[in-house]
C-alpha cells in the first residue's frame, strides 16, 4: 500500500472508468418518467430555460414582456380606439362602457352593441368606426388585446375597489388623455405611426416580412401593477378611513393579508 506499483495503478484506474460508465449507463432516462399516464393524467414538465417566443411568425407579435413589467407601452389593438375622443372630448363616463366595474371582478370590455348605440349614427364615415360596424354586422367579437395581464394567481376585483371609492385613474392613469394621436387613424394611412411600441420594434425588426406595419396601440400601461405598487396604497388609501371609521386600523391590517389577492 505504501507505494503503489504501476500495475495497481492500472487496475484502479480501469475500475474507476468502468464504474463511472456503469453508473452512467444505469441512469434513469426521461422516458421512464414521461411515458406513464401521459393521456389519462397529463403532467407538464418544468422548463429550465425561458420558453422561446415564436420568433419568425405572425404569432411573435402576440408575445410581450409580462404585464406590469414595462410601463409606457401596450399591445397592438385591432381598432384604433381613442379614449381621448370619448372621454375628454365627449365627456363620457368610464362606466358607460365598462359597466361591470361596479358589479363584477372584471370592469368589462363593452359589448359591441354598446359601441353601436352611438356609432349607428356618429362617425360612420370613419374607417375605424366602420370596422366596428363590420364586426357588429358579422356578429363577431372585437378581439381586443389585454393590456393589464396580471399573473393567474392574482385575484383582483374591480368591484371592491370601485365600490370602496378608488378612482379609476388611480390605477389606470389619465386614460382620458390616451389615444390622442390616434384620432384620425387610418384616414391618411401610413402617416401616423404607432408610438412607443417596443415589442413591435423588437420583433418587427427581425421580421422577414417587411410589410408588417405596427398596429395601433390604443392603451398603454401607466402603472406597473406589481405587488409592491399595490401595497403602496393598500394599507394607506384614504378611502379606508372613510369607509371603516373606527374599524379602519383593523381594516388596514386586514388589507395586508396575502389572501386578499392570492387564493
Amino acid at each position: 500500500m505504501r507505494s503503489m506499483t504501476k500495475q495497481h495503478h492500472d487496475v484502479a484506474n480501469l475500475a474507476g472508468v468502468v464504474l463511472a460508465f456503469a453508473t452512467l449507463a444505469g441512469c434513469p432516462m426521461p422516458a421512464d418518467y414521461d411515458a406513464t399516464e401521459a393521456i389519462d393524467f397529463p403532467r407538464k414538465t418544468h422548463s429550465l430555460l425561458p420558453p422561446a417566443p415564436p420568433a419568425f411568425s405572425e404569432e411573435a407579435k402576440g408575445w410581450h414582456l409580462g404585464s406590469g413589467m414595462v410601463t409606457g407601452t401596450g399591445p397592438e389593438q385591432p381598432i384604433a380606439f381613442p379614449h381621448y375622443t370619448h372621454v375628454t372630448q365627449n365627456g363620457m363616463e368610464c362606466e358607460y362602457c365598462h359597466q361591470a366595474a361596479r358589479k363584477s371582478i372584471h370592469a368589462g370590455v363593452p359589448q359591441v352593441s354598446t359601441c353601436m348605440n352611438c356609432h349607428t349614427y356618429v362617425g360612420k364615415d370613419k374607417p375605424e368606426v366602420a370596422k366596428v360596424a363590420e364586426y357588429f354586422a358579422k356578429g363577431e367579437s372585437i378581439p381586443w388585446k389585454k393590456v393589464h395581464d396580471l399573473p393567474d394567481f392574482v385575484h383582483f376585483s374591480h368591484k371592491r375597489h370601485v365600490r370602496a371609492g378608488v378612482d379609476c385613474t388611480e390605477c389606470h392613469g389619465q386614460m382620458g388623455l390616451q389615444g390622442k394621436d390616434l384620432v384620425g387613424w387610418g384616414v391618411d394611412k401610413g402617416d401616423k405611426a404607432a408610438h412607443g411600441d417596443e415589442h413591435g420594434d423588437e420583433h418587427g425588426a427581425s421580421h422577414d416580412d417587411t410589410s408588417h406595419e405596427p398596429g395601433p396601440v390604443t392603451v398603454i400601461r401607466e402603472t406597473t401593477m406589481q405587488m409592491g405598487w399595490c401595497l403602496d396604497c393598500h394599507a394607506t388609501h384614504p378611502s379606508i378611513d372613510t369607509n371603516y371609521g373606527n374599524k379602519a386600523d383593523l381594516r388596514r391590517a386586514e388589507l395586508k393579508d396575502c389572501w386578499t389577492c392570492h387564493k
Binding site: 408575445w63 410581450h64 370590455v109 352593441s113 367579437s141 395581464d149
Partner: peptide
Amino acid sequence: WYKTPVESILPYV
C-alpha cells in the same frame, strides 16, 4: 416565466 402571450378579451356582441 419570462414572457407571456398577449391574451385576447372577447366581449359579447
